[in-house]
Write a protein that binds this DNA or RNA. Structure first.
Length: 381
RNA sequence: UGGGGUAUCGCCAAGCGGUAAGGCACCAGACUUUGACUCUGGCAUUCCCCUGGUUCGAAUCCAGGUACCCCAG
């Protein structure tokens, strides 16, 4: 089999390359470049601008060293424009609406398992492979996406929007391995990046002061922070778009009553609404609607089924009941109230270890009322 | 300009003569391929509105200032 593997310069994809190679496959690698700080005007709060070697080039050097060590060919592909058009523009549009998107899921959907998949096909490869912690079970009729053996590193959450067709042609070589095993192999192979720290933050952009990063694209606009319970003004925020539901840090509210958490916002009024303490009822919801559904399984969604759901990465699964409504939205009823479910974020569904698919959280409800209605009601009461 | 009260870290707030609790905020780190949450650590080193005084010793007692608040005018 002829396989193209995405090599990032990290440990996981390096070991994935080794695994495929040792299985006797014909493997070539490709390094993707999706972000350019200068052309994308990413200046504020950018920690790497002053560095003599930019982090991305270091990653490329690392990837090159791995490819050389293994004797594999390394391609370099540039998706900077496509990332901007298909991922970052959507990301910004969502933020402008006051929602909180997940750029890495968009990236997997549009870049790694779409643009990159097309590239692989055009180059005559049969299969695509990445260093994600996930498993895929290819059957005659369908391919199942399954949680990684290393439950602590499972990344199926981020893969829920990958096109079904590319899942059909994708391999996750390290999905059966634990992180420690992966590092041990890298060490044994003598790879320089064996001890390289796991990357975090938005992939391709990196870990950043997020508010400063957003300020490059979404101008600051001061407004009021309001306590939903007493309707009093507690302070000023720097821009309602910079805050997300459930957020505690960055509010700057002193006093003895807190901590305070963001429970909602009004983009038009530029007001941020907060409530006290983490167990505040205002943070909890009991159902939501989901759009942009991507579904891997042939289950009939017209009938209500009991599954589990994740509303954010590394959150324990919640028991829910789902059913596709006539409006095309998936209705999701939570068995227990869930905290800080946020519009724009992804809801991902599972049946045991099988990842069924996922979609974008549209509206969040409690006792049948949309969050914003509840807030408006409380303010006018 | 009669009476009463309060002045302690950015914000709340303990302390009541023995050598500055705690919470919030903030900062740093950990965790983490999103945004968050969470966890750990740091955060008034002779300083407690100012100036004197009493005392072995005061943020804590006394005197005089200053500022703010409340009630009367």
């Amino acid at each position: 089999m002829k396989i193209l593997l995405g090599l990032s310069g990290g440990v996981d994809s390096a070991v994935a390359a080794y695994v495929l190679q040792s299985q006797g496959h014909e493997v070539e690698c490709a390094f993707m470049r999706n972000w350019d700080s200068l052309t994308n005007n990413d200046l504020l709060g950018n920690p790497t601008l002053g560095d003599d070697v930019c982090a991305q080039e270091q990653d490329y050097e690392d990837a090159k060293a791995v490819a050389d060590k293994l004797g594999l060919k390394l391609h370099r592909v540039d998706f900077v424009k496509k990332y901007w058009d298909d991922v970052f523009s959507v990301f910004l549009d969502e933020y402008r609406k006051g929602r909180t998107p997940n750029p890495d899921i968009l990236c997997n959907q549009h870049i790694k398992f779409a643009a990159f998949y097309d590239f692989a096909k055009s180059m005559g490869f049969d299969w695509l492979a990445t260093g994600h912690y996930a498993r895929v079970n290819h059957q005659a009729e369908q391919s199942e996406l399954i949680r990684a053996v290393d439950s602590n590193k499972d990344q199926t959450y981020f893969l829920c929007q990958m096109p079904v067709e590319s899942l059909r042609h994708t391999l996750f070589p390290i999905g059966e391995m634990k992180k420690e095993e992966v590092r041990a192999i890298a060490l044994k192979l003598g790879l320089d990046i064996a001890q390289k720290k796991d990357s975090t933050g938005i992939c391709f952009i990196g870990e950043r002061n997020f508010r400063e990063f957003l300020k490059n694209y979404l101008p600051s606009k001061k407004g009021k922070i309001i306590d939903i319970e007493t309707k009093t003004i507690l302070g000023d925020h720097q821009g309602v778009l910079y805050y997300t539901i459930g957020q505690r840090k960055g509010l700057g509210i002193g006093g003895n009553l807190g901590p305070w958490f963001v429970i909602g916002k009004d983009v038009k009024k530029n007001e941020l609404y907060v409530a006290r303490l983490e167990d505040n009822p205002w943070l909890f919801s009991t159902s939501c609607t989901v759009s942009h559904l991507n579904w891997f399984n042939p289950l009939d969604l017209r009938k209500a089924i009991a599954v589990t759901a994740k509303f954010r990465y590394r959150q324990q699964d919640s028991s829910v009941q789902i059913q596709l409504g006539d409006d095309g939205f998936l209705q999701v009823e939570f068995e227990q109230p869930v905290s800080s479910v946020t519009p724009g974020q992804e809801a991902v569904f599972y049946l045991g270890d099988v990842c069924l698919g996922g979609g974008v959280i549209e509206d969040v409800f409690k006792e049948g009322r949309i969050l914003n209605e509840r807030i408006a009601g409380a303010l006018s009461a």
